[in-house]
Each structure stands twice: as structure tokens, then as C-alpha cells.
Write a protein that binds this DNA or RNA. Structure first.
Lengths: 163, 163
DNA sequence: TCGCGCTGCTTGCAATTGCAAACGCGGTGA
DNA sequence: TCACCGCGTTTGCAATTGCAAGCAGCGCGA
């Protein structure tokens, strides 16, 4: 595949750098990359990795996201939901907790939608395709077990294999 | 030290993929990367470039930003734990759903904090510590009833974490 | 028992990243 | 004139990415 936007990201970086009135070497030092490499990036000769991109963004004191958008690495589309974005960005949650919260949230949305349409029906019509709707995986319940005191088996499996 | 969480991004991807119930090869095809490479990424043996990361996010139908955050590539200077704010502002939720979500979120935070303090301690089951404040009111379980039905057939416990 | 298809994993290897060192250019002071 | 300093750029080269091909294991129908 060609590199259609590599040039634009380079131009963008150079633009930002010049607006900040700092030299290539200064930015390179601030970003922790070598000056030759930064030079090549700015001229579109190299496609920097995400890591380098992030460091450059830091060195420029600009939003990483702006840079990623410029690089075409983040679709500019609005996030589907602020709730999900907030959950995903919350470092206070464990991976599993995050997923559980999102699952619950999404199922709430579905429930809400179903309530709207389901004026006369009362039984669950078994959604035609489950390819897209995640019906709360077992992790959901597993993670909730500690809270759901009424649960049958106290199989908690609260392993925090993190770190 | 540039990327201390290369492993976690792999785990995150694998987690998302398994929750989507698709095979490694399927995701690889959907993302347009080779399956061996994806395998190595998931196991933390490779640090994928931003481009690859973006394609994987697309293949997983998840937010690219979420992946970048997971990869530690977007350390947005604003890590606002505005989960609650987002929930409150979400017009798609009912009032009760909103309250349940917030309750779950807060109890997750508590659990997380408890885990932190407990990590250095010996295996100390903290089940007995639910006396100070019941984390989840009955609304919680009530709201979840319809979903909990999916696990009544006693399958579950299918952890299938990497072996 | 085969064979087929699927799962994920290992193995070389071409292409690329990213860097250290060196280059040419322009401005400044002695 | 020279030496010096900074600028951006060019030049090899080690390390890494990312892939094509192949391997081992599992489930299923003949």
C-alpha cells in the first residue's frame, strides 16, 4: 500500500514545530528521537511508529490524538458513546471491570431499544443474529458473583493476573 | 521503558477477540495483517506499529482510541474519570439504568482499591468486608435478571484463558 | 483409519525503522 | 581569513517489523 498520508503528517509536524519556533534538533531532543529521523519524518520519507508519534506529540505539547488523526490512524468519527470512551479511559478500572461495565451499558441500551419496540410482545423473540449483539458473556456474571450474594455457586475466580 | 505495557495491549486484543468469538485468523484477515504476526502481537512478542494497531481496531470493531490508550500511546493529559458524568449525561439510559451503572462503577472502584491494598498481603479473602456499605443495591440484581438468565444452564466457568 | 478443515504457533527472510556519524550550508566573532 | 556554532540533510548499519510458508494439535465426517 502506498503511504498517502505520511506526507501530511510530516507536514503537520513541521508546521507545528515551526509555529512553536523550535529547531528540528530541539524537537528531536524533546521528543527523544534522533534528529535525522525526525527530519525524514517531516519530509515524508519515513512512516513513524505510534510510539515515535506519541513522543513527538509530547515534544510538541500537542494532543496525541490530533497527531493520530492527522496520520490517518484514528478515524475522525465521533466516539460511539461518551460513556464507553470514559470507561475505556478510566485507569482505575481493571480490564475485566471495564469490559463488564461496557457490556452492561450496551445491554442497557439494547434493553432500552427493545422496550421501545416491544409494545405488544412480551416473550423474548430470540434475536435473529447474535453476530453483533454480545449477550453479556460469562465474564459478566463471573465478575458480578461477589456482589450477587444470591448466586448459586460461590465460584469467584477472582484472579488478578495483572502485572 | 518506553512501552511498559506491550504485553497488556496484546492481552487486550486477545480479550476483545475472544469476546467477539472470532478466531485469530479471522481477525487477522479482517484487520489485514498476517495471522502469525497477530499471534505474536497478542502474546506480547511484537510491538505493532500504529498502522497495524489501527487496522486491528477496525477488525475488532472497537475504537482505535481505546486501543491506543491500552497501548499507552495516548496518555491524554486529561484522564478524567468522568465515567459518572458521561453516564449521567447519556440520554439513552433510563434513570434506573443510570443509577445501576453508577453503582456498579463505584463498587468496581472500591474493589480495585481493596485489591491494591491486598496484593502484598497474604491471600486474604476479602469477602467479609462487605459490611461497611453494600456495594450494589437490589436494583442492581433486579436490573440484571433478564441477562442473568443466560447462565442458568450451568455452563459458564469456561475461562479458557491462555494455557 | 484416513482425510479435511480449523485452531494457534514457529521459522526463516525481505523490508523497514530508527540511530550514530558525518556532510554541506549559512551566520558570527576574532 | 579562519575557527566555531547552529541549522537541516545524507549516509551506512543494527535492530525490528511484518509476512509467506510450514508445523503440530484438535474435531468431524467418510
Amino acid at each position: 500500500m502506498a503511504l498517502p498520508k505520511v506526507g501530511s503528517i510530516g507536514e503537520y509536524i513541521r508546521d507545528q514545530r515551526q509555529q512553536a519556533k523550535i529547531s528540528l534538533r530541539q524537537l528531536a531532543a524533546a521528543a527523544g528521537v534522533s534528529n535525522p529521523y525526525l527530519s525524514q519524518i517531516e519530509r515524508g520519507l519515513r512512516k513513524p511508529s505510534a510510539e515515535i508519534l506519541n513522543q513527538i506529540a509530547k515534544g510538541l505539547r500537542i494532543s496525541s490524538q490530533a497527531l493520530y488523526v492527522q496520520a490517518g490512524l484514528i478515524e475522525d468519527r465521533e466516539p460511539p458513546s461518551d460513556v464507553i470512551t470514559a470507561i475505556r479511559a478510566d485507569a482505575n478500572l481493571s480490564e475485566r471491570q471495564r469490559q463488564v461495565l461496557i457490556d452492561i451499558y450496551e445491554s442497557f441500551l439494547k434493553e432500552r431499544r427493545a422496550e421501545d419496540e416491544q409494545t405488544s410482545q412480551n416473550a423474548h423473540p430470540r434475536h435473529d443474529s447474535d453476530e453483533d449483539d454480545a449477550p453479556l458473556p460469562e465474564e459478566f456474571l463471573a465478575a458480578l458473583e461477589p456482589y450477587a450474594a444470591t448466586s448459586r455457586n460461590g465460584n469467584v475466580t477472582q484472579e488478578t493476573k495483572e502485572g
